[in-house]
């Protein structure tokens, strides 16, 4: 896993995300959003970070056995590392396609698993990396620049 701790993080926070906990699902993204607002970051940047964090959080809740979202705020960017232990993604390319989902019928009935999670994260990020090992878990690295354009 790439370590971004040393690139001059001004602040680091870690949110634990429990598998299958739909009562608390979304709380990590919500806390992160408030934190970024308190830091006075640009609303558009906060929006993209909140969407990416929310989708990553939901992925961990729905698909994994649990994980963490670590956020480093540097002078230039928000770096998110979303790491879970779980089944992993066998075909990453497919998983990045809009509408592709492996969520169960039950999850879809709850209004999740529309296959937009990873594409939405990718769209929100300035840099995006995904690594996954089947049977072990998945790690996303999401960078959102403070001064980004679109």
């Amino acid at each position: 896993m790439p370590d971004v701790k040393d690139v001059g993080a001004l602040m680091s926070v870690t949110y634990d995300v429990a598998a299958r906990d739909f009562v608390r699902a979304g709380e990590a993204a919500s806390k992160l959003k408030r934190l970024l607002q308190q830091l006075g970051l640009d609303p558009a940047v906060i929006r993209r970070a909140a969407i990416a964090a929310y989708e990553a959080e939901m992925n961990i809740v729905i698909h994994s056995y649990g994980g963490q979202i670590k956020v480093d705020i540097t002078p230039e960017s928000i770096e998110m590392i979303c790491e879970d232990s779980g089944p992993g993604i066998p075909d990453i390319e497919k998983a990045l396609q809009e509408g592709y989902s492996t969520a169960t019928e039950e999850i879809r009935e709850m209004g999740f698993g529309a296959g937009m999670g990873l594409p939405n994260i990718q769209r929100s990020a300035d840099q995006f990396r995904i690594e996954s090992t089947v049977g072990e878990g998945t790690c996303l690295q999401v960078t959102i620049l403070h001064e980004a354009g679109e």
Binding site: Q37, G40, L41
Partner: peptide, 12 residues
């Protein structure tokens, strides 16, 4: 209304 400071390091 949430912003703690105009300067990022001070806000942190």
């Amino acid at each position: 209304i949430l912003k703690l400071d105009d300067d990022l390091s001070r806000a942190i």
